[in-house]
Design a binder for these strands. Structure first.
Lengths: 181, 181
DNA sequence: CTTACTGTACCGTCTGGACGGTATTGTCAA
DNA sequence: TTGACAATACCGTCCAGACGGTACAGTAAG
């Protein structure tokens, strides 16, 4: 009762992501998710009537946390001391350093059916459009956006190709270019 | 060893990639692959004793075609009229425009077990090291490398977030920066 | 009475892979 | 030349188990 109780729904979502990370994105079974979430299978299916619904929720959850982080960043220095591209780069740099378990859930959704990623595509296109309207140099924006996508994909695949120095080099280059705009 | 006419092996590999693209990376079954390749399941299992071996071959195949393209690019203008980073950017730009079905096979391997991507990581790290030794400005190299990774990941996920103009803007910016090094 | 589950039993389907068989092509001693 | 054998490259069937999903009776809390 005391504190914030994690709902079954949240426990299931977290368990699904963690499990996807452990067993591989394509080997996620409802039985295993229910067990890890400390929920009966009937309970899981009460919250998510089908596996597809679970996958959609996993993606929505991922997008939601992304959106929240963006909003938090925006309200932190709400006025125009920094341009929005700079804010986005800094946010992404910070996200790069911490691991985000929910990403594995997105991969599980992808494995099930690539169409589950459509909301991600739409979200990113919207984000890019917003950035575009607030950034004078489109070429530099594209470069920055793509660098961050590259970084994000590496993290998604858990491929630590770059070391910290190399990552920071790219990021600070971007920040310099963004400030010069 | 390697036959000239399309061997069963090659047909199976192609069928697997195509099918992964159709049914989703995580829903690839040996039966379906065999059927599409025009081979019996026994025949498939003769060429690839386990599903894991198939997945490994899919990844190797992908890497091989990547490697071949790089080598072809290098021998095309073998001497130092262009630096190697410029060559890599141009190659990637060209790859961006054509669709590559083998990418779906890589996703299937990922869905099965993320560790199957280890050879990809190693290959890319090696590539980056080579580029690093031949490129004076490391920061610009990192930016270029990451932009290309971003582009590649979008293609992998079949997310056409950017239009041609936007893509070319980023690419020509990179080319300009690379030439200035 | 409703909400939010638990727990168990069950169903039809699909899956990886084992296995035994077979046609074709070499290899090689007599 | 021939007959015996072996290797290659598959085919087709079968199976134990896992899977998503259904059904339903029970229950504890508000």
């Amino acid at each position: 009762m005391a504190g914030h109780r994690p709902s079954s729904r949240d426990k299931i979502l977290a368990a699904a992501s963690e499990l996807a990370d452990i067993v591989g994105p394509g080997n996620l079974s409802l039985d295993a998710v229910a067990q890890r979430a400390g929920v009966s299978k009937g309970g899981l299916l009460y919250n998510f009537p089908t596996k597809a619904k679970l996958m959609q929720a996993l993606v929505q959850d991922y997008l939601k946390s992304f959106e929240d982080a963006l909003e938090a960043e925006a309200s932190k220095h709400g006025d125009a001391t920094k341009n929005s591209l700079t804010a986005y780069i800094e946010l992404s740099a910070r996200e790069c350093e911490q691991k985000q378990p929910s990403a594995a859930g997105v991969l599980a959704a992808l494995a099930e059916d690539p169409d589950f990623l459509n909301p991600v595509r739409d979200f990113k296109r919207q984000l890019l459009d917003r950035l575009k309207s607030e950034t004078p140099d489109t070429a530099k924006l594209m470069v920055a956006f793509l660098v961050i996508e590259g970084l994000r994909s590496m993290k998604l695949f858990d491929m630590d190709i770059l070391n910290d120095d190399e990552r920071n080099m790219a990021l600070s280059y971007l920040l310099g270019e963004a400030a010069a705009s």
